Simulated scan of single mutants.
Amino acid sequence: MVDLRIASVSRGAKITIVVNGQACSAFEGETVHAALLAGGYRVLRKTVKTGQPRGIFCGMGVCYDCLVTIDGVTNQRACMTMVKGGMEIRVDE
């Protein structure tokens, strides 16, 4: 899996999350949004009406475009949720 993080930035402890059944690296202190973006995920969901792809837009919890399923709970905002080791995330591909 790709890691698009800036190498020189100091981070918390490295943890593993699971995205659509695949292990993905994350770091304590970052959001689900940051971990998904660094892992190369750009589309997080598709609209119900038209199936248009949606990803990160505002990154601060206002737009609701980053909704994902976390540990079986649907419609969680990726930009407002901190990662935890072993967290299972589902995004539309």
Rank of each mutant, 00 (worst) to 15 (best):
residue 70 I to V: 10
residue 81 T to N: 10
residue 18 V to M: 14
residue 60 M to P: 00
residue 59 G to F: 05
residue 30 E to S: 07
residue 36 L to M: 01
residue 5 R to G: 01
residue 28 E to Y: 05
residue 24 C to Q: 15
residue 3 D to L: 00
residue 84 K to N: 10
residue 80 M to P: 00
residue 23 A to E: 13
residue 38 A to V: 02
residue 17 I to G: 01
residue 63 C to R: 15
residue 39 G to A: 08
residue 21 G to R: 12
residue 83 V to S: 06
residue 9 V to T: 03
residue 5 R to L: 01
residue 86 G to H: 12
residue 40 G to M: 11
residue 71 D to V: 10
residue 30 E to L: 04
residue 27 F to H: 14
residue 44 L to P: 00
residue 40 G to I: 08
residue 24 C to K: 15
residue 13 A to E: 08
residue 92 D to S: 14
residue 48 V to L: 05
residue 85 G to R: 14
residue 65 D to M: 13
residue 60 M to C: 10
residue 77 R to Y: 00
residue 84 K to S: 13
residue 54 R to Q: 11
residue 63 C to Q: 12
residue 78 A to H: 02
residue 75 N to T: 07
residue 44 L to H: 05
residue 1 M to F: 00
residue 49 K to M: 07
residue 71 D to R: 15
residue 80 M to Y: 05
residue 47 T to V: 00
residue 52 Q to M: 06
residue 92 D to N: 14
residue 13 A to H: 13
residue 21 G to Y: 11
residue 37 L to K: 12
residue 47 T to M: 06
residue 70 I to Q: 04
residue 24 C to W: 06
residue 75 N to C: 08
residue 88 E to N: 14
residue 52 Q to A: 01
residue 61 G to E: 09
residue 73 V to Y: 05
residue 74 T to Q: 11
residue 63 C to L: 11
residue 26 A to N: 09
residue 67 L to Y: 03
residue 35 A to Q: 06
residue 22 Q to N: 15
residue 76 Q to V: 13
residue 48 V to D: 05
residue 75 N to F: 10
residue 2 V to W: 08
residue 21 G to E: 09
residue 14 K to E: 05
residue 20 N to P: 03
residue 89 I to R: 11
residue 27 F to Y: 15
residue 47 T to W: 08
residue 63 C to P: 05
residue 46 K to R: 15
residue 14 K to C: 01
residue 45 R to C: 04
residue 54 R to D: 00
residue 74 T to E: 12
residue 10 S to T: 10
residue 72 G to A: 14
residue 22 Q to A: 10
residue 72 G to I: 08
residue 84 K to C: 07
residue 61 G to Q: 15
residue 26 A to E: 03
residue 64 Y to A: 12
residue 9 V to A: 04
residue 7 A to Y: 00
residue 21 G to C: 05
residue 74 T to H: 08
residue 15 I to W: 12
residue 39 G to Y: 08
residue 76 Q to D: 04
residue 13 A to F: 01
residue 2 V to S: 09
residue 56 I to M: 06
residue 43 V to M: 08
residue 33 H to M: 12
residue 12 G to E: 09
residue 62 V to Y: 13
residue 24 C to E: 10
residue 81 T to E: 07
residue 5 R to A: 01
residue 9 V to R: 15
residue 80 M to F: 05
residue 82 M to A: 03
residue 71 D to C: 11
residue 78 A to V: 04
residue 29 G to Y: 14
residue 52 Q to N: 04
residue 42 R to F: 06
residue 89 I to A: 07
residue 62 V to D: 06
residue 11 R to S: 09
residue 84 K to G: 01
residue 17 I to Q: 02
residue 79 C to F: 08
residue 73 V to M: 10
residue 68 V to H: 04
residue 15 I to T: 03
residue 90 R to Q: 12
residue 48 V to R: 14
residue 67 L to H: 04
residue 35 A to D: 03
residue 69 T to S: 09
residue 78 A to F: 02
residue 47 T to P: 00
residue 62 V to P: 00
residue 91 V to Q: 05
residue 58 C to F: 12
residue 81 T to S: 11
residue 85 G to F: 02
residue 38 A to K: 10
